[in-house]
Every structure is written in C-alpha cells, then in structure tokens.
Design a protein around this nucleic acid. Structure first.
Length: 799
RNA sequence: GGGCGCGUAGCUCAGUUGGUUAGAGCGCCUGCUUCACACGCAGGAGGUCACAGGUUCGAGUCCUGUCGCGCCCACCA
C-alpha cells in the first residue's frame, strides 16, 4: 500500500493499518496465516501462532545464536522496496532484461584527463565514493594515487587499485558504490571507503542524493542521464542485456541495500549438511539431485533470516532502550542483562518462513520436549518433494535437523518431476496455467487424474498432464468398473453368494490364495492356474517397482495385467464357465479371489474405485476381513504361487486363437462367420488344443479338428513351430495373407543373417559370454524352423 | 559465467546395470451395435533411437564433439 512504511509509522500503527486492510480484503490474509501455522480467532480479529511451533522456533534460534551461528550485522541485503522488507538470496529471481550500458566521464583532478566508467545503473553514481582500476592495468599506471571529481555531486573521490576492476571489461575503470552493490561493498571495506546511501527503503532517493532527493529511483536515473548529457559527460549509450533481480513475490526490482539484519552463518552448517549426503546418511533419488544440492551448499552465503513483515514468528531478541544491549532468549527477559534497566523491547522483525519450515521434521513431533513421537518419527524414512524446493526446504531441514537434533531428518529424498501442461509449460499460480484439481477430478474422476499423474511420474522426468492422458486413464477406470459389473451381473444370474477370501490385516496370516479344483473334474481349471500365476508375477513386479520409486512402471505393469490379461483373456475364458456354473463353487471362488487380488494390487493407483468395488464384493462384516481394502495386505510374490506350466499352456492357447484371428483377418472374412479347420499339433499343442476346443471356438469363432503331428494341406495355413492351423475357407482372398507371410519371411531372413554373422564372427565367439552365444544359437534354430514354416505356407499359397 | 537435463513412432513419453526382431498411451487405417465396457473388441500401418566420431565381440544405452531445446544457480560495471 502506498506510503505504508512500518519503520516510519511504528509496529502498532502499522498493524492497525494492515488489519483495516484485512477487513476490506476478505479472508486472503486469514488463509495465508493458516498456511503459516497460525490459528486465527476471526471474531476477535486476533491471531496467535501455534504455541508449540513458536516455542520450537524460539528454541532453535536461541541454540544457533549461542553456538555463534546466528549474528546480527550490517550487511548488503536484497531489499524489496514494495514489500519494504529484506529478502533472502533465494527469494530473488533473476530475469533477463534489455538495459543500457552508460559510459560516463569522470574528470581526473589536476591532469585535465577523464576516466570513462560504464554502468547499468547511473543513479547509483550519486553514492560513488571511489573509482577503481586494476593494479596491473598499464593504461592507468600514471593515475595511481590521484583523485577524480564526481560529476553532479561535485565530490572528490579517490582512484583505488582493486581487482574489482577487470582490465578486459570496457574501459577497465569501474565506479564504486559501497552502499548499493555487494561487490562495491566488499571493495569499500578493503579500502575503507565511505558508504553513502542514496536510495531508501521505499525506492526513493535520499537527502544524500542532493538535488535528486525524493525522486523515485527510476525517475532519478532518467534525470541523472539527462543532466550528464547536458554537461557533455555522457560518452555513449550501449544496449546491454543483463539479469535483473526481482522480488519473487511481487516482481519489483530488488534494491541491494545496506541494512542491519539477522543472519545465519551458513558455512559451518553447510559442511555438516554436505557430509550427511556424502556419507549417504541421506540419499537423493534420483541420485543426480545430490549434485544440485552440493552445488548450492558449496557456494552458499549467509542466510538473511530477518524480515520487516508483520506476520510471522518474531525474532526472540530484546533490545534495551537504555544501553542498546541485545538479548536473545527463548522467554522475554524482564530486565537488561547488562545495565539492569527495565522496559525491554522485542525486536520488531520476524523470521523468514523457511526458518520455521526447516524445523518441521521435529517441531511437529513436540521438540524441544523429548516426546514419544519424536523418538519414533525422527528421523523419518522418506521425504517426497519437487526439485524446486530442494534449496528452500530440503536443505534447510537437513541443516536444522543436524544442528538441533544432531541427526539427519530423513534417510531418502525422492524428487519427483514438476507437473507441466500439455504445452510442457511449468504450471504455476502466477502464470495461471494451473490445472484445478476440482475441475479435472470432476471431469475425469479422481482415480483417473491420480493414475495419469502416477503414469507420468518417471523418475528424473517432468509430468505432462494432458487431456489425452486423463482420457485414457479414465477409460482404464471404466474398464475396471465394467469388469466388476460383468462379474456382479453374472453372480446374480447364477445365484452366487457374495464372497471374498479372508484377508487379515496381519500380513503374516495372509497366505496367497490357492486356486481350488473343480468338484467334478478334480482338477484346477487351466485359466485359474494361469491367472494366479500371473497375479503372482504382477505382484512381484509391482512391489519391485514401488520399492524403487518407479511408480510409472508399477502402474504400467498393473494396467497391462488388468486390461490385457485379466479382462482380455481371463474373463473371456470364464464366460464359458459362467454359462455352465451356478452357485458358489470352485470356479466362482477362484474368479472372485482373482478379482479381489487384482483390486488390492490396483488399490494404490486407483484408491477410490477399488475400495468401492471391494466393499461391494463381499458380505459386510465377513469374519477376518479388514474394514477397508487399504488395510488389507498388499499382494506379494510367493515362490509357490508360480505355475509356469499353466502359463506356457495359456500362451499356446493364445497363439492358436491368434493364428485363427490372423487368418480370418487376412482372408477378409466376416468375424461373425463361423469357420472350421484343423490343428496339426506337435507336443503340448495337441493336449492344450483338444482341452480348450470350446474356448477356441468361442474366442476365434472356429471349430477345430485336431490331428497329432500331421502335415497341413495347402492354402490358408498359419504355422508356428508347435502347430499348423489350417482353416477351411470358402472364398479365400489370399492377398493380405501373402503380404503378411512375405513380410515375415523378410524379417526372418534378416535376423537369421544377423545371427549367422555373429556365430561365424571369431571375435564374438571368443569374447562374448557363453550364455549369450548359446542363446543366439538357440534362437537361430527357432528362426530357421519358423522360416521353413513360412516358406512352406508361401509355397502352399502359390499353387 | 557455473551446474543439471533433454532430443526414441504423427503427438506425449517409457526403455533400471550395454546382450531377443526397440515398447506404451493417444492419434491413424481396416473390420465388428459378439447379451461388462464403442471410455469397447479384433486386426494393421508407422522408428537409419538429433548428427559425427570413438570404446566394445556387441551401443537407443558408455565416452568425446557438433547442432537444437529446456531448467537451475550466480556478488555477469
């Protein structure tokens, strides 16, 4: 707000004004304060910070202070003239901007010569207290020890020798403004130069700026340039791109100012924090981010933690009005420790919010008290966050944790990508391209949005959240829902009682379900043996992926399994059974157990949908059943639950059905047209084919005869090395089939040639591991057999 | 100036330690209102993995360079 300067009006009046503003601006401030951990008593228009947190902040501050890690000093800080507060280095964002480089003549006293300095900020020349040249710069040897006359201010200032001046840059002469530039400040200290502050806390020129006093800093710049031009001291103006520091919050150009502030001495803290990551007491995932962390820690500067804002935790320091003693203490002292005077005043400044945020891992657990929570939850195992707050928060939690607790706050830091929109733009509140979770969850469903995020969250990459992705995950959610609907419908039709196998919360008691044998045949149906083996494999992969934070991979495994194994094959195969079966028998129990296991597997990525379906599956309050799927054990790999024979057999079945479908498609035949054919089967294919004849008829719409080891006729034949499938086709259009076979032959020729070349390569044979050689030899045999089949089929077509 | 990362199918991206004929979703093409699902089913087309070298028996994967793109940090007159 215009003219709102807390320093000038005093804290009480300032707060009064802000509250007035608050009443006019609705609940914005209330929300901000709640985010800051304050609780607000709206009716009484007062707020207090959570006392526990405040106590932790005071305690941490005092501890660091006593260890000499916090000091109060006059130093160059980033100052936002709009917020009227100091801000930390991290809160300054640098923007490229097109500026100018003004070249200005400074007359050298007693020589008649001029020095030319270049600057991007001519208004600061009003505060110049020296010009610098480099000691080694031969152009200026004769000017050592001389003075120049500062134009406009008519002040005599020395020429100093300093490395600040780079002989390579411009004229090699640089103006020195110790009060408004960090480099110049350091240079000023080296040469004991005066600091003349020409810009004040609101961005206006001070009395020290003489005729320019009271002007806005940018207006002053124009006037200074104009006046120099009039005096003929402006040599030239060059266009110049530079990066300008802006206040992260309000985009105002930051002003470097000298100011008395509280700082945290970072070097010793950073050393410990670096060691914690180097020794792997803390690990970044992906590991690469530790480089970013190190980079920052190695180049760290002291952290300005005081803010001239009205909200936040006040600095626990008290000033004596009498002797100006400063006392840092957790509780307000009554009298001055030095002179004994009463009437101490608390420091009006508040702390950077990240100071208290850095205490989060232990302040939330009751620290500084030694609570049970603290003992259990500190350090915690994992912190999940985005890379954009590694510096702001992660690094500071590590620093504070090590200092206050003597122990790292967490063991691993998983850094996920940033969410980007469909144009790959970073989403941010200020850009306005944020996705409103309420809108998209309304449109696509909460689980679909969640799954889209998870599937996009490959480690080390950003997350692209697009309509298309959410549409496809919605389709997946819909698929699950419909699969369930189908099962429930058939249960009703077959008068099957609801049932879920007991899943006790105690994981040790949760044995994997073993598929039951059919009462009549006394065998376990093939599709059940297969699906539980696949569920087992899926659980193994999902668990492994999750353990490595490869969430996208877990989601993909689950997607592939549920859609393309459970729905496409298992449910399709079970359709045959549902027609024959009624009542809760082995078939139904196996089916329901498989579905229930799949739901538990899917639960982390589709929590709402799976919970809903899981609740609908079984009778309420069934004994041994947890009240929520979230409490049921997550399926785990069990060695005994694998059935590789069943997997092999179902693969064969899929190949037979696939071959029939391929032929039908190649021959351009109507899918509704029932066909008949013969399977010339070798080995296991005969047994599988005959046993699953009905499944083949249903899924491929082909009625098959089975012949063991026979040779197929010519015509519509599809072969693998385990069978030849011949279809009786009325009017064969063999064009597409021929194209397919020719393409296959071409590919096989290629890979066979490749394999042969490798196997005849002496270097390969002598150096490659035996395992690799063996596998290539084996594969070559397979390719060769396939090629024979393909060529035979092609020859058959030719006649 | 310093650091990090990316360039793979028309689009958006996976591809863990180098080893089958490089994958997915969307889009596209063909055919299906098959009684869970057209937000679906079946089949299909489509990639000299940015470019140039190198290491290796073997490179999308490792190294170097080039080009293009992005991000972070910085006391860049």
């Amino acid at each position: 707000e215009e003219g709102l300067d807390r320093r000038k009006m005093g804290r009480e009046a300032f707060v009064e004004r802000v509250w007035q503003w608050k009443r006019e601006s609705g609940d914005t401030i209330k929300r901000q304060m709640v985010q800051l951990g304050a609780s607000c008593d709206w009716s009484r228009e007062r707020f207090t910070f959570d006392e526990g947190l405040s106590r932790a902040v005071r305690e941490a501050f005092v501890r660091l202070y006593r260890k000499g890690l916090i000091y109060r000093g006059e130093y160059m800080v980033n100052w936002c003239p709009r917020c009227i507060t100091a801000i930390s280095d991290l809160e300054v964002t640098h923007e490229e901007s097109n500026g100018h480089l003004w070249h200005i003549q400074y007359p050298v006293n007693g020589t008649g010569r001029h020095l030319v300095v270049a600057t991007t900020r001519p208004e600061t020349m009003l505060g110049d207290t020296a010009v610098a040249v480099n000691e080694v710069d031969s152009r200026y040897f004769d000017l050592h020890g001389k003075t120049v006359q500062l134009p406009l201010m008519d002040r005599t200032i020395p020429i100093v020798l300093d490395d600040l001046a780079d002989p390579e840059f411009g004229t090699g002469v640089v103006k020195v403004t110790p009060a408004h530039d960090l480099n110049d400040f350091e240079c000023g200290k080296r040469h004991k130069l005066a600091r003349i502050k020409v810009i004040d806390e609101t961005g206006h020129m001070t009395e020290a700026a003489g005729p320019y006093a009271g002007l806005d800093r940018f207006e002053a710049r124009k006037r200074v340039v104009a006046d120099l031009e009039k005096l003929g001291l402006l040599v030239k103006i060059e266009p110049y791109t530079m990066s300008v520091g802006e206040c992260q919050r309000c985009k105002t150009v930051v002003e470097p100012l000298i100011s008395k502030q509280w700082f945290v001495k970072m070097k010793p803290l950073a050393e410990k924090a670096i060691a914690a990551v180097e020794s792997r007491r803390i690990e970044f995932v992906p590991e690469n981010w530790s480089k970013t962390y190190f980079e920052w820690m190695y180049n760290i500067r002291d952290w300005c933690v005081s803010r001239q804002l009205w909200w936040g935790h006040r600095i626990p320091a008290w000033h004596c009005r009498n002797c100006e003693e400063v006392m840092v203490a957790a509780e307000a002292p009554l009298t001055c420790a030095r002179c004994g005077a009463a009437g101490l005043e608390q420091d009006p400044d508040v702390l950077d919010t990240w100071f208290s945020a850095g205490l989060w891992p232990f302040s939330t657990m009751g620290w500084p008290d030694q609570t049970e929570d603290l003992a259990v939850y500190y350090p915690t195992t994992l912190l999940i966050t985005g890379f954009d707050i590694i510096f702001f928060w992660v690094a500071r939690m590590i620093v504070m944790g090590l200092e206050c607790m003597g122990q790292v706050p967490f063991r691993q830091v998983y850094i996920h990508g940033l969410i980007r929109d469909a144009e790959r733009q970073k989403m941010s509140k200020t850009k306005g391209n944020v996705v409103d979770p309420l809108v998209v969850t309304e449109k696509y469903g909460t689980d679909a949005v969640r799954l889209a995020l998870v599937m996009g969250a490959a480690p080390g990459t950003d997350i692209v959240l697009s309509q298309e992705r959410m549409e496809s995950t919605r389709a997946f959610a819909n698929k699950i829902w419909n699969a369930a609907r189908f099962l429930f419908l058939n249960m009703e039709r077959s008068a099957v009682a609801p049932w879920v196998p007991s899943r006790e919360i105690d994981e040790a008691a949760a044995e994997p379900y073993k598929p039951e044998a059919d009462a009549e045949t006394l065998t376990v149906p093939l599709e059940d043996r297969w699906i539980f083996s696949r569920l087992n494999a899926c659980a193994e992969q999902a668990n492994a992926a999750i353990a490595q934070y490869r969430f996208h991979e877990a989601a993909q495994v689950l997607w592939q399994f549920f859609w393309h194994e459970f729905c496409d094959w298992y449910v399709e195969l079970k359709k045959l059974r549902f027609q024959e079966n009624s009542g809760l028998n082995a078939h139904w129990r196996n089916t329901l157990a498989a579905f229930e296991t799949a739901l538990r597997l899917l639960h982390p990525v589709m929590p709402f949908l799976t919970e809903e379906l899981w609740q609908r599956m079984g009778p309420e309050g069934a004994s041994g059943r947890p009240p929520s799927i979230a409490l049921a054990p997550y399926p785990r790999y069990s060695h005994g639950a694998s059935d590789l024979i069943a997997e092999r057999q179902v693969n064969l079945l899929q190949e037979i059905i696939g071959a029939a479908r391929d032929l039908r498609a190649d021959m351009k035949l109507d899918p509704k047209l029932p066909l008949s054919g013969t399977l010339y089967a070798r080995g296991a294919a005969y047994a599988v084919g005959t046993a699953q004849a009905e499944a083949i008829r249903r899924l491929a719409n082909v009625k098959l005869e089975f012949v063991q080891d026979g040779a197929p006729p010519k015509g519509a034949v599809r072969s693998t090395h385990e069978f030849d499938l011949a279809l009786e086709v009325p009017m064969a259009q063999t064009g597409a089939h021929r194209t397919r076979l020719e393409k296959e032959k071409e590919q096989l020729d290629k890979v066979i040639a490749n394999s042969r070349r490798q196997l005849s390569d002496e270097a390969f044979m002598s150096k490659a591991p035996a395992k690799v050689v063996e596998s290539i030899r084996h594969k070559l045999g397979d390719y060769q057999a396939q090629l024979d089949k393909t060529e035979a089929a092609l020859a058959g077509l030719a006649e």
